[in-house]
């Protein structure tokens, strides 16, 4: 079944400003992380979600604290939007003791049980079955909790995607599959790796409710996510949302993106989700100064976090062996 919205989404100004703050925080966090990485401050790999902010913000704004998300190696935005602590996230990228997972997980694997972030995931598609399990637990609990799996179009090639769509639909689980279709599986365009580039068409035969959404329009994302969450909470089963979005940077920071044309790279920011919503708010009557003030507050928050994190102690090497097994069940 395809969900067709019958009304234009509307929003109160206060909530609209919160959406803007959330998206701008992701934008600023990612931009700063990119600069820190280029400056040699962050070890390892990082994968930025610049250009995809509206998906993280729109979906997570439809969730409650007890709802869970599983995310991807490109997951900073999802974690921030779900309520992950910005300073702890930044500390994690640095490998500091004050990181959300004490520097064990890093950018690609961080989680936060205090706000229902089951985890970023270093394996493409690896977090999807985990979200099915969280949805099963929600169904067994009989509470109206829902479970979200974020993944990209690349993950659609993994067997666990298809298996999970089948199982969640079969068991009518309260789950939302959120596919961020940014046109690339790492370095490979969608048309080169999928037999059908419309993800909803690949999923539809399983009988799952599907909806294609402009993933760079935060209001459209929020409205679609709200419909999917309500279906889940009512016990009507899972929904797959295909978010058409844009990855501004390469697969990883440092990727020269030779596989994208100059025209494509130039046009990429035309659908800037942050700028689009700024315009949308001004059309709703919000004055530019209020938005500038939000941007200044967020910039100061990110800057302050970096300054604190720079001074933090590194992760404790003497506790490197902790938590391999749950405490109380040490091997």
């Amino acid at each position: 079944m395809t969900i067709t919205p019958t009304t234009e989404p509307t929003i109160a100004v206060d909530q609209g400003l919160e959406l803007y703050r959330s998206m701008f925080r992701i934008r600023r966090f990612e931009t700063t992380a990119g600069e820190l990485f280029a400056g040699g401050k962050l070890p390892g790999f990082i994968h930025l979600s610049l250009g995809q902010e509206a998906v993280a913000t729109g979906v997570c704004s439809a969730l409650d604290d007890h709802d869970t998300v599983s995310t991807t190696h490109r997951g900073h935005g999802h974690c921030l939007a779900k309520g992950g602590d910005l300073q702890q996230m930044m500390a994690e990228l640095y490998g500091k003791e004050g990181g959300v997972t004490r520097g064990r997980a890093g950018s690609m694997h961080a989680s936060d049980s205090s706000v229902g972030i089951l985890g970023a995931n270093g394996i493409v598609g690896g977090g999807i079955p985990m979200a099915v399990g969280s949805a099963l637990a929600a169904q067994l609990d009989g509470k109206s909790r829902v479970s979200v799996a974020f993944f990209g179009d690349g993950a659609v090639g993994e067997g666990v995607f298809t298996e999970s769509v089948n199982l969640a639909t079969l068991w009518k689980l309260p789950m939302i599959f959120v596919c961020e279709n940014n046109g690339y599986a790492e370095l490979t365009p969608t048309a080169v790796h999928l037999a059908n580039t419309r993800i909803i068409e690949l999923a539809r035969p399983y009988g799952i409710a599907v909806e294609a959404v402009d993933g760079n329009d935060v209001l459209a994302v929020l409205a679609a996510a709200t419909r999917a969450v309500e279906r889940g909470r009512r016990g009507e089963g899972p929904t797959l949302l295909e978010m058409d979005t844009t990855r501004w940077h390469g697969h990883f920071e440092g990727d020269p993106q030779r596989y994208r044309s100059k025209e494509e790279l130039r046009a990429m920011t035309d659908r800037d989700p942050v700028a689009t919503w700024r315009t949308g708010l001004i059309e709703l009557g919000v004055d530019a100064e209020s938005l500038d003030a939000i941007e200044a507050e967020v910039a100061a928050e990110v800057q302050a976090a970096v300054e604190v994190v720079e001074l933090m102690a590194p992760s404790r090497a003497d506790e490197l062996l902790r938590d391999v097994y749950p405490e109380g069940n040490r091997a």
């Binding site: 089951l118 690896g126 079955p129 985990m130 969280s134 637990a137 929600a138 666990v160 298996e163 089948n166």
Partner: peptide, 23 residues
């Protein structure tokens, strides 16, 4: 007590997600 599809990876992953959330 549930029968599943023949999907070993998703069987284990589903168990993991349920284990992480209380079961």
């Amino acid at each position: 007590v549930r029968d599943t599809p023949i999907s070993e990876a998703t069987i284990v992953g589903t168990a993991l997600g349920a284990a992480m959330t209380g079961y």
